[in-house]
């Protein structure tokens, strides 16, 4: 009986090889996707990683308060404008000192896509050997839910409210993962919390690929507080984001895109938006605009993955080695 029961255990548990370095009672909102992601990373990659990141919802916990800490990891807090530049300094120091470790630059979408994008882009060009993880909660949550470049069309935030003039954000979201993959860095991937085995595999792949240079993970991590969602729905939101192709799961080695999960019959994006108050006001026409955007981006992704398989990648790019 006991053995039969063991056989059914989810294989995700096999990836959790290390201790949770965080204290049990940590001040993230109930149902926060970021909290699950943050506890998951060191349990998969090990507790000897060095994390660096900027002011955001993750910082109060990662940085600690007064002279006490919420976790036992090494953390280096930086400004929003210089996250990837600071991570560059760290990896170069460790390399000079002969220390072989993993540096993880961990930031929200506001830092990665907007305020700290310049130096992220620079680190990608120089192919710095660290892992950059962006947790995407589609806005500047820590300062009171302002819109960011990855906030989707129609979503209400405190800077894109619903009223007589504006009806949520009237711009399309930017595709951060794709624009990083286009830099032909050793490894780029998207991931989310409903597919934890996929996330674990990608973390481990990134740890390996960082020996060849810059790695970027774009992780969709719902924020129930900012999105007006039921905290219990966090995982379901991720699942539907994947099933509607709102957030497709793929990876790219040296820029070559490969889908890691294909959805046979994608659901309409309305089945995703209905779970959050930030989309409440959207009419059928508004949803159609969002749907068109999702379809367009997915089509582009599919096209790129086919095209890239046909094109010969220059050897110099394929074997891009250590930075100078």
């Amino acid at each position: 009986m006991a053995e039969k029961k063991q056989g059914r255990l989810t294989k995700v548990l096999d990836y959790l090889k290390h201790d949770d370095p965080f204290s049990k009672g940590v001040a993230f909102c109930p149902g926060c996707g970021l909290e699950l992601l943050l506890r998951f990373i060191p349990r998969v990659l090990g507790n000897d990683i060095v994390i660096t990141g900027t002011p955001s919802c993750s910082a109060p916990v990662l940085l600690g308060q007064n002279n006490q800490s919420w976790h036992t990891l090494s953390y280096f807090g930086t400004l929003m404008t210089g996250a990837a530049a600071n991570a560059t300094g760290l990896v170069r120091y460790y390399r000079k000192a002969g220390i072989d470790n993993t540096v993880v630059c961990f930031n929200g979408d506001g830092t990665a896509n907007d305020i700290g994008f310049g130096n992220l882009s620079g680190a990608a060009e120089r192919n710095e050997p660290f892992i950059y993880i962006c947790y995407d909660n589609e806005g500047y949550m820590n300062t009171g839910i302002q819109k960011s470049g990855t906030t989707p069309y129609g979503a209400t935030t405190t800077t894109t409210p619903y009223g007589s003039v504006h009806k949520g954000k009237n711009l399309r979201r930017m595709n951060l993962g794709l624009k990083m993959a286009m830099n032909k860095i050793p490894y780029t991937a998207t991931a989310t919390l409903s597919d934890l085995d996929d996330l674990a595999k990608k973390l481990l792949k990134a740890k390996e690929a960082k020996e060849r240079g810059f790695c970027f993970l774009h992780v969709f991590a719902p924020c129930p507080t900012g999105w007006g969602a039921d905290p219990a729905d966090t995982i379901e939101i991720c699942r539907r984001a994947v099933k509607t192709n709102y957030f497709p799961l793929w990876e790219a080695e040296n820029g070559r895109i490969r889908m890691t999960k294909t959805v046979k019959k994608p659901k309409s994006v309305g089945t995703y938006t209905e779970l959050m108050k930030k989309f409440n006001h959207m009419t059928e026409d508004d949803i159609k605009i969002l749907q068109d955007d999702v379809d367009y981006e997915y089509c582009l992704l599919g096209g790129l993955s086919v095209l890239e398989a046909e094109c010969q990648l220059p050897v110099s790019v394929k074997d891009q080695g250590e930075t100078s």
Binding site: P21, S23, S74
Partner: peptide
């Protein structure tokens, strides 16, 4: 639990060897 590996030398404020902070989240 394994402790801070790399920044130990920085000073007492960065040593997470002391008991970790912990909030009574069960109370929420």
């Amino acid at each position: 639990m394994s402790s801070n590996h790399y920044f130990k030398h920085e000073g007492p404020w960065s040593d997470a060897g002391d008991p970790l902070m912990c909030t009574d989240t069960g109370d929420w």
